[in-house]
Design a protein around this nucleic acid. Structure first.
Length: 203
DNA sequence: AAGTACCA
DNA sequence: GATG
């Protein structure tokens, strides 16, 4: 991956079909307990096009009033997030190179017309730990830049089963999802894409 | 601007 | 339509 900051790794085909299917079942259970909701931008309250939920002791949330943050409870149900599934801990242990376990798994569901603007993951106190991103379902066009919003960016496709690890110099790089390619995977019966991001929040 | 529109 |  020439042109990318050191520490950004793309692992195409990391998960075989069987493990992808197992992960989808795990996420179904998470969503049953912690329903997907529509996050809102800080200040404006403008809704994002993705729907979100979390599992693990902490979850990333955003709303009009309080903005981006991690909290231990679901904003709609008020209950704790579902437990971090063992399958996700195994993946973290395999690729993160980090001692402590992840505290948050943000679950982003993209319908075929959803997108995610360029942003940095910088709401974590622990910036030594990498961010591990897992793609399931339809392919997407992923865009990665540098440490400044106006740095040149590079785009490439992510397919179901791919992993991206943002670590080292790349930990705070800008990134986003420009489009979903409809009908490029049979994993999710109703289309769309699921992205899972594992993060260590506290040092 | 973790959003959207528009344009070359 | 893809790309930036």
């Amino acid at each position: 991956m020439s042109g990318l900051l050191n520490g950004i790794r793309h692992l195409p085909g990391y998960l075989d079909r069987t493990r992808q299917e197992a992960l989808v079942e795990v996420i179904r259970a998470v969503v049953a307990e912690a329903p997907l909701y529509v996050p809102a931008m800080p200040g404006t309250g403008k809704p994002m096009s993705v729907r979100m939920t979390n599992c693990g002791p902490l979850g990333w949330v955003t709303d009009k009033e309080r903005g981006y943050r991690y909290q231990p409870t679901h904003p709609a149900t008020g209950g704790p997030w579902p437990e971090m599934p063992k399958l996700l801990l195994d993946i973290w242990n395999d690729v993160s190179g980090y001692e402590k376990p992840p505290e948050a798994c943000l679950v982003n569901f993209y319908s075929d017309d959803a997108r995610m603007g360029l942003h940095q993951d910088k709401d974590e106190q622990d910036l030594e730990a990498p961010v591990v991103s897992i793609s399931l379902g339809n392919s997407c066009l992923f865009r990665v830049g540098g440490l400044n919003r106006n740095d040149r960016t590079l785009s490439f496709k992510l397919a179901s089963g791919d992993l991206v690890v943002l670590g080292g110099e790349g930990r705070l790089c800008f990134h986003g999802v420009d489009r979903i390619y409809p009908a490029t995977s049979t994993l999710l019966k109703n289309g769309g894409r699921i992205n899972l991001t594992l993060r260590r929040v506290r040092p």
